[in-house]
Design a protein around this nucleic acid. Structure first.
Length: 826
RNA sequence: GUCCGGGUGGCGGAAUAGGUAGACGCGCUAGCUUGAGGUGCUAGAGCCCGCAAGGGUGUGGGGGUUCAAGUCCCCCCUCGGACACCA
């Protein structure tokens, strides 16, 4: 290498820094959180754990960069921060890979975990590597089974027949939450319906609490997520109303949110696929017709059902019910627009005031009666009238508005014993059975004599049998069912031959409580330690994608309440604050191989270095916004890091130099920037944090080159502050700066700089002078200037004098010390 | 269809309580450094008119409240997301 004399600049060598500092950090373990006797206040910062489907990608890089800013910040602020990581390691991709490779899913899964773990270390994630878990380890899923049994014993886990979502491609059932727009969340294939006997968790028992406890989350969760959950839970209020049915002993109850329109109910609809519908036509000539209709309905995929303007279909059941308030005989129909598993599976149709009912009525020429005053006639316009208004044709409700009419009709119904106030939830129980291999076996044994027998706790875990390759091929029943040696066991109760439940649990079960397992991941005596939970939980800060707004977050909230009720947890909400980061996209769309816009994280890290990539992620914009990688510059980030790093080499004062002796102007910048960074971090405005550090670096550069000079103590103070703040985002660079500043490692053990409030007061502020609201002049003033003085100074400005032209201002607004607005009447 | 977010320079984005719009950066231009490229440094810049001083205009569009509006209110356009026959 040729020497070029004094011009030779030191080079910022990120590769060398990585090589130098990773081993040091391993040694120092600055993010260890389990040390006994550590009396720092505790804080739990959690990143949503990844699914190990290959190496980390750009999305992970963003999420973990953001989580790291928070975790590292709180460590610097003196907290004992628990920041663990694990792997959500059960699931279909591993199984599909195993089939292809002729192996057990374990090998593929653990290979990917090892790779991701290595990438996380390279990426300098501030995880506590003593707190790690994989959900596919028997040591973990054992406690899934234990939890399941706790629920089973209390009736919260139960089996029932039902029409369930079925993914023909994945060959398994899906929870409602996993059907996205009629498509399978996993494979994007169309979802169909199947009647199966499956396991459910009684999340609907918790619907009201899931709703009510959101008040605890209002301050810490994005309102968007709360709204999505609220909508998903979907509470509605109304009434249950009983209709006598000709030729049937029992009346039929319907649920309606508009009991006030009861006088306008001109027919009744029963869910076509309900038992009720079948019963109503049993043995009649309509029976065949209904079956035929049902076949036709089933043939229609969910995608067709999606279409908003899909014409209504149905079958007249040749039966009649009686409207309880006016005694009117109304025909009964079956249709697929009424859902069997919502409300009572039957509705009173009020075509004048419900669009769907109107569509049906017009299609089948059924009567339409307006019972709420309106200018337009739904029968003519085809548009149902849903607005509030005065009731007509409604007996005792006539002349009342909607609220009053609802109150009145409830009275009337109560009096006659034919109806009452009722609530309904859109939320359904959580279907957790899956007909796949790579998941937690359901710890139940089916015995002809004893029924569903829980596996005794001392026999947990029920381990997965060793299956590989073609044995895992989906066939509509769980691959476990074919593992005869595994399936066939003696009943724990009576000892007779019995069978294990061959389904596995939805993997969302695993992730619904993993945050508790981090407390003591190696504990083989209990799922988690309630005592430790008391100390560390709830999770103070949760970081993850908005894709989990409903599924994972709702389930985790549900589990927390269940565990609370079981006496294991004192709190009822698991995550106090939630940050949803956006996605990393490329040229406007989600990255994918098929689109050809995939950016590989490892390539970016090779090209720019870890710190530059992290900095780019954080600086790109607000964390919840998407980042278009094409719009940001990792090269620019690297340039800045090199600038900051060089700064550290230019400081000539010794460590411990008394900052109080330093240049006051620079000190003011430093303290202001530290202060603003602090506010910005706590407000998730990480991009602004970076901007402020940049300003600090610029100020220090200027001070060294053309100000107080490199020996001034204020320069050291500024550069040290920059290094500490930068460590949130660019740990390698910051650590190297710290070393160049002649400090022992690690910068992560430094304390967040103390802000001196006296230094936050500016010497002078710029006062804006407006004339009629338009900026015409500025001048510097003392921040303490009085309103009167400021007004006088402003009025004396030439620009104002000229504008006034000798006249008096009509009005002067003074906001000392920042602004004076002189209003001149025209 | 319903419900939520957004729309600020060429680009990513800043903007405590309504109070100097465009912080910070990318890209760009000019100059210095360099054998060249890159790096580094200095300066410039919303747009329009002007050599300049200066003026006009400006946060999707229109209206309103106010001394003052990116920020508050009403209407519209547009992009994105969630839910999607839940009675």
């Amino acid at each position: 290498m040729s020497q070029q004399g004094q011009d030779e600049r030191e080079t910022y060598d990120h590769e060398a820094m990585q090589a130098a500092w990773l081993p040091v950090w391993d040694e120092l373990a600055p993010f260890r959180s389990g040390t006994p006797g550590d009396d720092r206040p505790k804080k739990y910062v959690l990143d949503m754990f990844p699914y190990p489907s290959g190496d980390l990608h750009m999305g992970h890089a963003e999420a973990y960069a953001l989580g790291d800013v928070l975790a590292r910040y709180w460590v610097l602020r003196g907290y004992n921060v628990m920041h663990p990581i694990g792997w959500d390691a059960f699931g279909l991709p591993a199984e599909n890979a195993a089939i292809k490779r002729g192996e057990n899913p374990r090998s593929w899964t653990y290979e990917n975990i090892a790779q991701q773990k290595a990438s996380m270390r390279r990426y300098a994630c501030s995880f506590d590597w003593d707190r790690v878990l994989n959900t596919c380890d028997p040591e973990y899923y054992r406690w899934n089974q234990w939890l399941f049994l706790q629920m089973f014993n209390r009736g919260l886990a139960y089996r029932k027949d039902g029409a369930v979502n079925w993914c023909p491609s994945c060959q398994t059932v899906l929870a409602n939450e996993q059907v996205v727009g009629g498509m399978c969340e996993r494979c994007d294939g169309p979802v169909t319906k199947r009647k199966l006997n499956q396991w459910y968790l009684r999340i609907t028992d918790y619907a009201q609490r899931l709703l009510d406890d959101m008040s605890q989350l209002e301050a810490g969760w994005p309102s968007k997520v709360l709204l999505m959950q609220r909508n998903w839970i979907g509470k509605s209020t109304g009434a249950k109303v009983s209709f006598e049915v000709e030729g049937r002993d029992e009346p039929i109850t319907v649920y309606t949110t508009r009991p006030d329109t009861l006088y306008g109910a001109t027919f009744m609809i029963v869910a076509a696929d309900s038992d009720l519908a079948a019963e109503l036509v049993a043995g009649t000539s309509v029976e065949v017709e209904l079956v035929k209709y049902l076949e036709q309905v089933r043939a229609a995929s969910d995608i067709e059902r999606q279409s908003t303007d899909r014409p209504k279909t149905g079958v007249f059941l040749q039966r009649y019910a009686t409207n309880p308030v006016n005694g009117e005989r109304i025909p009964m129909w079956a249709s697929d627009y009424v859902l069997a598993d919502y409300g009572t599976g039957a509705i009173m149709a009020v075509p004048a005031h419900d669009q769907r009912d109107l569509d049906f009525a017009l299609k089948f020429d059924l009567p339409v009666r307006v019972v709420v005053e309106s200018d337009s006639d739904p029968k003519v316009t085809g548009v149902a009238v849903a607005d509030d208004g005065l009731h007509i044709n409604s007996g005792p409700l006539d002349g009342l508005n909607q609220d009053d009419a609802i109150a009145k009709i409830l009275d009337v119904l109560a009096e006659r014993g034919t109806g009452e106030y009722a609530e309904n939830f859109r939320l359904r129980d959580w279907l957790i059975s899956r007909q796949r291999y790579w998941g937690t076996p359901i710890p139940i044994i089916h015995c002809d004599a004893c029924g569903q027998v829980p596996v005794p706790e001392d026999q947990l875990p029920v381990r997965l049998p060793e299956l590989a390759g073609d044995q895992l091929r989906p066939q509509g029943v769980s691959p476990l069912a074919a593992a005869e040696e595994w399936v066939n066991v003696a009943c724990p109760n009576c000892g007779n031959p019995a069978q294990r439940d061959a389904d596995t649990m939805d993997t969302f079960f695993d992730s619904s409580w993993y945050f508790l397992r981090f407390l003591n991941p190696a504990d083989d005596s209990q799922a988690f330690d309630p005592e430790l939970a008391k100390q560390w939980l709830p999770v103070e800060q949760y970081v993850g994608g908005v894709t989990h707004a409903i599924l994972h977050l709702l389930y985790a909230r549900f589990f927390t309440k269940v565990l609370h009720d079981l006496g294991y947890l004192e709190f009822t909400e698991p995550f106090t604050k939630l940050l949803n980061q956006g996605m990393v996209v490329m040229n406007g769309s989600a990255m994918s191989k098929s689109r050809g816009n995939l950016v590989r994280l490892s390539d970016e890290l090779d090209a720019h270095g870890v710190d530059a990539v992290r900095l780019t992620m954080v600086f790109a914009g607000p964390p919840e916004d998407d980042i278009d990688w094409a719009d940001v510059s990792a090269a620019g980030a690297r340039k800045f890091l090199a600038r900051a790093w060089r700064l550290a080499g230019d400081v000539t004062s010794a460590p411990g130099a008394n900052a109080a002796d330093g240049d006051v102007a620079l000190r003011k910048v430093t303290h202001k920037m530290v202060h603003e960074c602090q506010l910005a971090v706590e407000d998730y405005r990480f991009n602004v944090v970076v901007a402020r550090v940049m300003e600090l670096v610029n100020a220090a550069r200027k001070a060294i080159d053309s100000g107080c000079g490199p020996a001034d103590a204020a320069v050291r103070e500024a550069v040290e502050a920059a290094a500490i703040i930068l460590s949130l985002v660019a740990p390698f660079t910051a650590e190297d700066m710290w070393a160049r500043l002649a400090h022992a490692p690690s910068v992560m053990r430094a304390a967040w700089p103390q802000v001196d409030p006296a230094l936050l007061v500016a010497d002078a502020v710029t006062c804006a002078v407006q004339i009629n609201g338009k900026l015409r002049d500025t001048f510097d003033v003392n921040p303490d200037v009085s309103e009167a003085d400021l007004q006088e100074m402003a009025l004396a400005r030439p620009a104002v004098q000229t504008a006034l032209a000798g006249a008096q201002p009509a009005r002067v607004i003074v906001r000392a010390p920042k602004l004076v607005n002189v209003v001149i009447a025209s």
